[in-house]
Amino acid sequence: MDIQAYIASGVIESYVMGLATEQECAELESLRKQYPEINAAIAEFEAALEAGAMANAQQPPAVVQQKIWQTLQSEFQQQPTVNATFSEKGKVIALPWLKYAIAAAVIIIVASGALNIYFFQKINQLQQQYTALVNESNSLQAGLNIYKTKALDLYNSMQVMSDPNMIKVPMPGVKGKEDNLATVFWDKQSKAVYLLPNRLPQAPENKQYQLWALVNGKPVDAGLLTADCNGLCKLKTIPEAQAFAITLENKGGSATPHLDQLYVMGKIAG
């Protein structure tokens, strides 16, 4: 087949302008698949016809477009606009950034969570240490108060003992109780009696030590040694005595001493 003659026959123009018969159309559509030059000739005439039509375009009235849009409005899809295209592009760029941002946020949250746990534990630990320190401080303070009281007691005792009116009466342990010792300080002027229990065994629960003044051979109650007496303790006032002695009596004391329970005894020096 002479393709150039076919192309020049006018069949292509007939085809493009819609004037070819069905048979002509079928023949051309089959041939154009085999011969690129037929395709090229078709495209060339289409372009010429389009250019001619475009050059002779007539502006239709605006009302036509309005009517068309009224008819088809419901079928229109809202399309990606130019802006949307840009923003889509933006998304492509933004996406990796967003990914990193999310990853960073997750890391920060996890890290912050871990820090929270760490700080919580640390705070608990410090709280415990603080409580321990407060307790220790309290007990030290309490201990200090005890020493303060003791120091005050000792000071007061020293004041009493160093008084020039004081007569010191040492009472060593009697036979069989030589390890024991107590001392009486007796004020010559006020006749007040102070007892210092240097070395006396702990009194049993239901017993108490009782001090006796020996006045002209007779024992006179000079007071009970209470459990809270840690130093020099003031007992009863005794106007006159030649000696002092301590016995262990039932709680509350006795009217007369049980001599078998005599612990210490000392005479007042001439």
Binding site: A53, Q58, Q59, P60
Partner: peptide
């Protein structure tokens, strides 16, 4: 569709 109308309505109207 709007593009097609802008582009070709005049030629088709012709």
């Amino acid at each position: 569709f709007s593009y097609v109308y802008q582009q070709y309505s005049g030629a088709l109207y012709g």
